[in-house]
């Protein structure tokens, strides 16, 4: 769907040096949006058509509020496109395509564990809200650079969800010092000790992960070792965002073990962790 999103709020998130923004858009996209889906936003200097930047910018949907016709996008100012986007003011209208992509799947029962690295936390918020509203137990593992980042990137909103949370930072300024995979590993060991047989009362856990590629690869390997299903959210440079240009392919392994390409924009951005080929491209 191509629609206009009315900017109803656009604010800095946390500390200036984190360059994070929260953008709330009002429009029809909210009606069908699912957690894990994204929109592409046309970034323009002014109301007059400009071709620099030419391409729309993909941004995940971080919060969905169909009753208010609102979606929330959380983003980091990275280059020219997001810098221009950051100039959008309340009352402006932005051309958006979407919701696009497939979205996370929700387990029918058991626990959903969210594993985030850095701003990979953003799309997981909508998923947490959805899972909680369906009565699932949700747990968060989130790793980031430092306390300032975590607080800027929405830690307070996560605290309001009152879910069990394990934080880690690279410099140890908040939570455990180290990578997010460490607390995840301990938690997996607790639900599935290496020597135990599958038991009837075993907690059924599914994992949803978003973050840097290396982190998602490690999380996938961990989950596979503990036989826990995992979905990951991939990123790739996009042209059309509807599956027409083949600009955004990722490499997967099919059931027969052959390497194949899938489109991140249309077949993803959410894929089962075990089908992703992390290091090779073909």
């Amino acid at each position: 769907m191509l629609s206009q999103g009315l900017v109803v709020s656009h604010e800095q998130l946390g500390n200036t040096d984190q360059k994070l923004r929260r953008l709330v858009l009002q429009g029809p996209a909210a009606q069908t949006a699912q957690a894990g889906q994204f929109v592409t936003v046309q970034v323009q200097d002014s109301a007059r058509a400009s071709f620099d930047p030419l391409l729309r910018r993909p941004i995940s949907i971080a919060e969905i509020s169909p009753e208010r016709d609102e979606i929330t996008l959380l983003y980091r100012i990275k280059g020219r496109g997001t810098e221009i986007l950051a100039q959008a003011r309340c009352g402006d209208s932005l051309s958006i395509m979407g919701p696009l992509g497939n979205g996370f799947s929700l387990p029918e029962e058991g626990e959903l564990w969210l594993v985030a690295g850095g701003i990979g936390i953003f799309p997981l918020f909508a998923l947490a809200q959805r899972a909680l509203s369906q009565g699932l137990k949700v747990r968060l593992f989130w790793g980031g650079e430092c306390k300032s980042f975590m607080e800027s990137a929405g830690l307070a909103s996560w605290k309001e969800l009152e879910i069990k949370t394990s934080l880690s930072t690279l410099d140890g300024s908040l939570g455990e010092k180290g990578l997010v995979t460490e607390p995840l590993h301990s938690a997996l060991t607790q639900i599935k000790p290496a020597d135990s047989k599958p038991e009837a009362n075993e907690v059924r856990v599914s994992v949803a992960a978003c973050g840097p590629k290396g982190m998602m690869q490690s999380v996938t390997e961990l989950c596979q070792r503990f036989d826990v299903p995992i979905e990951v959210s991939l990123e790739e440079r996009m042209g059309c965002a509807v599956g027409a240009c083949l600009g955004c392919v990722c490499t997967l392994k099919d059931k027969a073990g052959r390497l194949i390409h899938k489109k991140v924009c249309l077949d993803g951005p959410i894929f089962r962790g075990e089908e992703v080929v992390w290091n090779e491209t073909c």
């Binding site: 030419l54 391409l55 440079r237 042209g239 240009c245 083949l246 392919v249 073909c282």
Partner: peptide, 23 residues
């Protein structure tokens, strides 16, 4: 054809470079 590895796209002023490689 599987085409070329990613990145296949690069944005340039008012333009787009593509190297899909005929996938």
């Amino acid at each position: 054809r599987l085409g070329n590895p990613v990145p296949r796209l690069a944005e340039t002023p008012a333009g787009l470079l593509n190297a899909v490689g005929l996938e």
